[in-house]
Design a binder for these strands. Structure first.
Lengths: 327, 327
DNA sequence: GCTTGATATGTAACCGGTTACACATTATGA
DNA sequence: TCATAATGTGTAACCGGTTACATATCAAGC
């Protein structure tokens, strides 16, 4: 790797001049510029970002803190984030915390000592005090933070309502629900919206985390305790997929006997049999927005937004019967 | 953030001494060590990794180059890689190339200028000349590279054979296959193994890439052109899921009328209805191995392995009928 | 008592950039 | 014509670590 000194020597100028043409600032004569550009081309020079970092105290790195990239909701988010970051010349450092505070703490010091320029936090654990004292640009994604940290989330409450409305509109009268982990604010709202609209049509409910295995157990519990019901809303698509599988096993026909709606809009929903009707969050969009917001923060373009609540939409596939069909 | 100078001043020693206690090398008296440790604790000092990088020319960063984290095969790999990296004090930088050479090239210079210590390449595109002239420790994962680059792959050929054996053993006589993208060596081998064992029992075959949408089209094509068949091997689990969905739509019963086997062993296979029988690669293990190998390379512990071929196993779920059942 | 090696510590150069500052030189305008 | 501003370029300090080297002390060995 060539250094700036070598370039300077070859172009017969000082390192300052080379730096000036690289960064397009300061005065540089046409001849000098040309000589430098030639030398850069000849030597295939690319400035050492570590050296630059040391002086400028910026690294071009964004830390991405998520619970587990293996959870199918996160890859799309990660992809969106990485895309936007890359478009703006940033790289992203991936961190899986498993929601463990110590791991999170470890990543935080690592990221800080390597001078990441900002953080995107998709950890759902509420109120980690680590963040607030961090003094780094950051935005929370699919997560709510108490203090004044920017957040991008989807409208879970409306999503829950929409799920109930949809089920009811297509004839469901006995509703069931599998809620997500209780400590997740954003997920709780889905349940609240659903419950509010369902009213006393809600005849059964249980909880599950977001692993397929546990969701399957929850589905079984629900069927055992509350069957029959004709409309079910799951707190996310993984849980919905588990319900679908359990329904097949019990020879419950979907959507004829039971309509199912998930939440998230991940690709998994297209792959189930039948394909899953779901409340879709604009996942990629959320990642994009969060990252653009973060980069604005990093580069001090202070748009004053504080919390972005994105609308969800109904993606109607084949686990619901469509409006009016049941009336 | 405190600097080494501040620590030195507070401990009444020179920066060299502080550096010595941080790195546990050179001679340091017990008193000096204690004073320094106290100062470090007082100031909450953590060394600036950028500064250290500049001198040592190591960054503690590993570049992870993959086609698309959104493809459900990759998150588990990424997770394994990140886990192992983290255990050894490395961070990982995520890059999605979409198999585009220019994007790849862009990432490569970015990663190089930030002095990543090594690369893990899961891009399936063969023979990118960019890598060979790179002079960085690297290992290919699920990918075969011509030159002397280490590789970790699973035994696709045996996997293909195993799929055929399994299908035949449980009574299938008319076999079909959906192969993956032609340019992927590792995927091609699956087809070769399957074809070799199937012999003239193979009555129909088509191709697809790894998107669900295209897989669905391929499945339709296959059904239209070659139905009936009673055993199908798909080049990966996403394609198998598409086949399952298409089978449901055509009222083909799985596994009674048609047995299906996928390849990969991703979690998706548990979530389909019925759950998918598949040839499982040890995905996490592959990621772990590749990363450990890379770190050995980086830290100059030269274990001479060159290509690691991992065995695959049959994960029998409910899209096959089990041995002997069809006889 | 003197040599020698182990122990202990500080000074300063170095890594490869950026930029403040000094010092030209060349317009520009009154 | 001369003051002033705009333009062009180099030197050296600086970012925060690491480490070669110089120097000093002390104990062991003869």
């Amino acid at each position: 790797m060539a250094t700036i000194k070598q370039v300077a020597k070859r172009a017969n100028v000082s390192v300052a001049t080379v730096s000036r043409v690289m960064n397009k600032n300061g005065y540089v004569s046409a001849e000098a510029r040309e000589a430098v550009e030639q030398a850069i081309a000849d030597l295939n020079y690319a400035p050492n970002r570590v050296a630059r970092s040391l002086f400028t105290k910026t690294s071009g790195l964004i830390g991405l803190i998520m619970p587990d990239i293996t959870n199918p909701f996160f890859p799309q988010l990660a992809r969106a984030i990485e895309d936007v970051a890359n478009q703006h010349g940033y790289q992203v450092v991936l961190c899986n915390t498993d929601e463990q505070l110590e791991k999170e703490q470890g990543y935080l010091v690592a990221l800080q000592t390597m001078h990441v320029d900002g953080l995107i936090i998709t950890t759902n654990h509420s109120d980690n005090p680590n963040y607030e004292k961090l003094d780094l640009p950051m935005v929370a994604l699919d997560r709510i933070v108490k203090s004044g940290i920017d957040a991008v989330i989807s409208d879970g409450y409306e999503g829950g309502r929409l799920a109930a409305d949809t089920l009811i509109a297509s004839g469901a009268t006995r509703l069931a629900h599998i809620a997500g982990p209780e400590q997740l604010q954003t997920v709780k709202r889905r349940t609240e919206g659903f419950v509010d609209v369902a009213g006393d049509r809600l005849i059964g409910m249980t909880h599950s985390n977001f692993t397929f295995k546990e969701a399957l157990t929850a589905a079984q519990t629900l069927f055992d305790a509350h069957w029959p019901f004709d409309g079910l809303f799951a707190a996310n698509d993984v849980i919905a997929a588990a319900v679908l599988q359990e329904a097949v096993r019990r020879h419950v026909r979907v959507p004829e006997d039971l309509q199912v709606i998930g939440y998230d809009g991940i690709e998994l929903g297209e792959m189930t049999s039948p394909p899953l009707t779901t409340i879709a969050q604009p996942i990629y969009e959320m990642g994009r927005l969060a990252t653009e917001r973060l980069i604005d923060l990093i580069e001090k373009r202070d748009t004053e937004t504080k919390e972005m609540l994105l609308p969800v939409t109904l993606t109607e596939r084949q686990t619901t019967r469509g409006k009016g069909s049941g009336r």
